[in-house]
Design a protein around this nucleic acid. Structure first.
Lengths: 202, 202
DNA sequence: GTCTATAAGAGGATAGAC
DNA sequence: GTCTATCCTCTTATAGAC
């Protein structure tokens, strides 16, 4: 009994290491440029061993996406967020979190265009569940923030949702950081400002 | 003399057709998913013939990027834009133009991450010249709009520039259009609103 | 479950005839 | 400059021994 549990722990640890590597590589170079050989080398095992854990490259990417969605959900449920009184503050905290993850090189990037990966993900139960879960949670916050008069009620909630998702993938924050003029915190403040307050003067 | 000119015209027309196909395919599926075979099939010539015109896949993509930058520059120089009194209005017109091109499926998409293409483009004279040309032009408009008090002067001009570039590549507008609830014009108005006025209520 | 070795195929690029 | 046919590399995926 204890032996089985131990083996499962080892298995879990190994798969965590794999997903970590995939996550990092997806953030760094994207799905197409990431090769399974690289993942194997990064984890330090043979490629064939990888395929014992995950049946395809698409499943590898899906696992990374599922995990980042879980992280997002966990952050939404965290005390740090729930203590914030206004829904708009919680949305902003979420956006800040996504930018932090992105600047840390841990935001796996999917091709926004149609691809083999996109169609694979759209049939992936865990991924869809995770995406729906986060989207519904955010959707409620958006509607609430609009009721509170904090988020522009003239905007369709889907637009607000899409805009927040886009924030996490946009190259703006990394580009701004790459100029070397601002530290991470300043970059995040600036990008949040353009997103929530717009480019126009107020 | 006339014969040579005619041949050059034919050559030019053929290369235009190629760049058109590349542009459309880049917009539809991106650089990695686009194959040279597809381009050749789309143009209606053999792949080997393609390589007589452009020496590599990267050069094909670069040609498409150069042309869209030329189109952007031409729009900036057009009467429709120059007649606008305020720099901020000209920036908004530019953003609107980019969204129209994107919704028309004519905005070639580059991988924002590092890739073979990115390094190739960074050594491509015509591309860099075109990009600098447009960026400088936009940069002047941004600074002027900030002086006018129309664009938030607290934002670094590079951030405004990057944000405008990101607008043209973001999946937000196509996604919103795909819901089928809004026509192109409405989608563009909504996205422009989030970009310039932000998500927060004013 | 881990390895080495290899199959299988896609896709960028080229040879050579016309 | 256009074609057909081919090369060759890279990459996903698997076979089979341990």
């Amino acid at each position: 009994m204890a032996k089985v549990s131990f083996r499962q722990q080892m298995l879990q640890a190994r798969e965590d290491a794999i997903v970590n590597a995939v996550n990092r590589l997806l953030a760094e170079k994207g799905f197409d440029a990431m090769t399974v050989d690289e993942v194997a080398a990064d984890v330090g095992i043979a490629k064939a061993s990888l395929y014992k854990h995950f049946p395809s490259k698409e499943e590898l990417a899906a696992a990374a996406m599922v995990r980042v969605l879980q992280r997002a959900r966990a952050f939404l449920d965290s005390d740090a967020v729930r203590q914030l009184p206004r829904a708009a503050d919680r949305l902003r905290a979420m956006a800040r979190w996504a930018l932090q993850v992105q600047l840390a090189g841990e935001m796996p990037a999917l091709p926004s265009q149609n691809s083999t990966l996109r169609s694979a993900l759209l049939q992936h139960r865990d991924y869809l569940d995770g995406l729906n879960d986060v989207s519904e949670h955010l959707g409620e916050l958006i509607v609430q923030a609009q009721r509170d008069g904090d988020v522009n009620p003239a905007l369709p909630p889907e637009l607000v949702l899409y805009t927040l998702y886009a924030l996490a993938c946009d190259p703006v924050a990394p580009l701004l950081k790459s100029t070397g003029q601002y530290d991470d915190e300043r970059v995040i403040e600036l990008v949040l400002s353009t997103c929530f307050d717009g480019l126009s003067a107020r």
